[in-house]
Each structure stands twice: as C-alpha cells, then as structure tokens.
C-alpha cells in the first residue's frame, strides 16, 4: 500500500513566495504613490515648512517607511531574478546578491534615519 504524503513533490515552490511578495508590495506601492500624488496635487507644499509638515504626522512617517520597506523587498526579488538570468558564475552571482542585500539593509536604516531625525 502506497502511503500518500501531503508534501507536493513537483518542485519545492520556492519561487511562489517571491512572486507573490513582488505583487503584493507592488500593489501597496501603487496605493501609496497614488495617494501621495493626489495629496500633493490638491495642495502643493511650497516651502520647507510645508514639506516637513507633510512628513511630521506619524501615520505619514509609518506609511512612507512601509513604502520603502516594500520597495526594497520588491527590488530584491527583481534584482535577484536579473542576476540569476545573466550572471552564471556562482561565486560572482553570490557576491553580487550579498552586496545587494547589504545595500538594501543600509537603505532601510537610512530611510528610518531620514524619517525620524
């Protein structure tokens, strides 16, 4: 009697999570960009006081931070795909992937620093 396992054996579906993450982050970024574009078009901030006023609300800081976090995740999936397609030597590809991850983590810290300083 063959015992049926619930594990799907046709591929490990590693790519599905990335594929879905790329789309969910994309939709989130579209919403943020459209809302921001509408707000800025309705009442265009003219000077420094007005611009820093826009980013003073904590919900705006959180939304902007989440936008950048989504952007960096989205960029990671995309750049990883590009590197897998064009950079064949494993050592070079791995080095580039690590550099991309480090850059994105530095950007995330930089974003928090810009928004909460």
């Amino acid at each position: 009697m063959v015992k049926h396992s619930s594990r799907i054996v046709t591929g490990a579906h590693y790519g599905l999570r990335d594929w879905l993450a790329q789309r969910i982050t994309a939709v989130f970024m579209v919403v943020y960009v459209v809302v921001l574009a509408v707000l800025i078009t309705i009442s265009p901030p003219q000077d420094y006081a007005a611009w820093s006023g826009v980013f003073k609300h904590s919900w705006m800081r959180i939304a902007t931070f989440l936008f950048f976090a989504a952007l960096f995740w989205h960029a990671w999936v995309g750049v990883r795909n590009v590197l897998m397609d064009y950079v064949k030597p494993v050592a070079i590809r791995l080095t580039l992937q690590v550099l991309v991850i480090i850059a994105l983590l530095v950007y995330l810290v930089w974003t928090a620093e810009i928004l909460w300083s």
Binding site: W51, A75, W110, I114
Partner: peptide, 30 residues
C-alpha cells in the same frame, strides 16, 4: 526589466538622497 534595474541603481540612492535633502533642514531644502 531595464527600467527596474535603473530604478534600483541609481534610482533608490537618488530618491533617498532627495528625501534627505527635502527634510533635513531649510538650508538643505534650498
């Protein structure tokens, strides 16, 4: 694909530097 790569680099550092200049101080804004 090409626009995506360019938005990653140099797009993201440019954008963050712009946001930094925008919000840091009245001098950096000017």
């Amino acid at each position: 694909r090409i626009s995506g790569v360019l938005l990653f680099f140099p797009g993201i550092p440019f954008l963050l530097y712009g946001l930094h200049m925008l919000l840091e101080s009245p001098e950096s804004f000017a």
